[in-house]
Design a protein around this nucleic acid. Structure first.
Length: 280
DNA sequence: TCTCCTAACACCTTTGAAGCGC
DNA sequence: AGCGCTTCAAAGGTGTTAGGAG
């Protein structure tokens, strides 16, 4: 997902009250001592000393940067935890918020609009001196902070990928979210557990919808089996590739067991890998 | 006139409390 | 009493838009 945004030059919206990042940062961590405690910290650093402007096609330098506001970091709320804890699941920083309010009292990370930034992850041993802090950065997570989206491609990607922006997806009247785009199977669809599948598989929008779901599932935390299961269930609901759902769109007991056995999925990553061949 | 920022808006998901049956 | 499930409302996360500031 980050790579996809990176290709279009990622933008992150800043608001006075604080805005979450999307995509947010999620890390698989390895190589820690499983018995030692660590604190995970994120901050965001300027990539250069320039401000930028959008010329309608691309970002171009537009003068000297405003001074960076130092000292704002986001400590992962589950810190400190053992290395074993951090390594057994991906670590998400989805609660981190960005603001352009230099008087912010909420502890959000303060950035300047129209400047380029790069998130950094710091792994801090809880019981050792600070000089053994390890810092990690990933070039594809760089972004330009904005107060309103400039590049339409970025807006479209956000809408396509962020569940909270679902109201703006295809079929939307420009400027106004569409009512209830959620795919609720109609009576007809539910009744057609087998013979109608062939017909529905020919729906030209089907593959697009599945790909959207796939993208959304990427943002589930790996430790939440229910999330994974729901993702699988939603997937099956959407594909109707197997009569998993009863008329109330609940899986029956057998199917439940069958897909619970997909605790093949110790992570969302595995769930997605399993679903991948079905989608592409 | 232009660029950038802000607040209000409608729609969405998430979360947690309440109610219910077993 | 405890558990699991469902329902529902509130809280909070989205991009869009109009209008304001400089």
């Amino acid at each position: 997902m980050w790579n996809e945004f990176y290709r279009c030059n990622t933008e992150m919206v800043l608001t006075k009250q604080g805005r979450r990042m999307f995509p947010y940062c999620r890390y698989w961590i390895s190589g820690l001592n499983p018995y030692l405690k660590y604190i995970l910290v994120m901050d965001i650093t300027p990539l250069d000393n320039q401000r930028y402007k959008w010329n309608g096609k691309w970002w171009e330098p537009a003068g000297k940067a405003d001074p960076h506001v130092l000292g704002r970091v986001f400590i992962h709320p589950e810190s400190p935890s053992t290395g074993q804890y951090w390594m057994h699941q991906p670590v998400s920083f989805y609660k981190l918020k960005l603001t352009n309010n230099i008087l912010d009292q909420e502890g959000h990370i303060i950035l300047h609009s129209m400047h380029r930034y790069l998130p950094r992850l710091h792994v801090v041993p809880a019981e050792k001196s600070p000089e053994v802090i390890q810092t990690f950065t990933f070039p594809q997570t760089e972004f330009i902070a904005v107060t309103a989206y400039q590049n339409f491609q970025i807006t479209q990607l956000k809408i396509d990928c962020n569940p909270f922006a679902k109201g703006f997806r295809e079929g939307t009247v420009p400027g106004r979210p569409v009512k209830d785009l959620k795919h609720k199977p109609s009576e007809q669809e539910v009744d057609a557990s087998s013979s109608k599948n062939v017909e529905e598989n020919e729906d030209p929008d089907r593959m697009k919808k599945l790909q959207e779901l796939f993208k959304m599932s990427e943002y589930l935390d790996g430790d939440k089996e229910n999330d994974i299961f729901n993702s699988v269930r939603d997937f099956l609901k959407l594909t109707k590739s197997t009569p998993v759902l009863d008329k109330d769109t609940k899986p029956n007991e057998d199917d439940l067991k069958r897909y619970k056995n997909m605790s093949w999925c110790s992570s969302a990553e595995e769930a997605r890998s399993a679903l991948l061949p079905c989608l592409f």
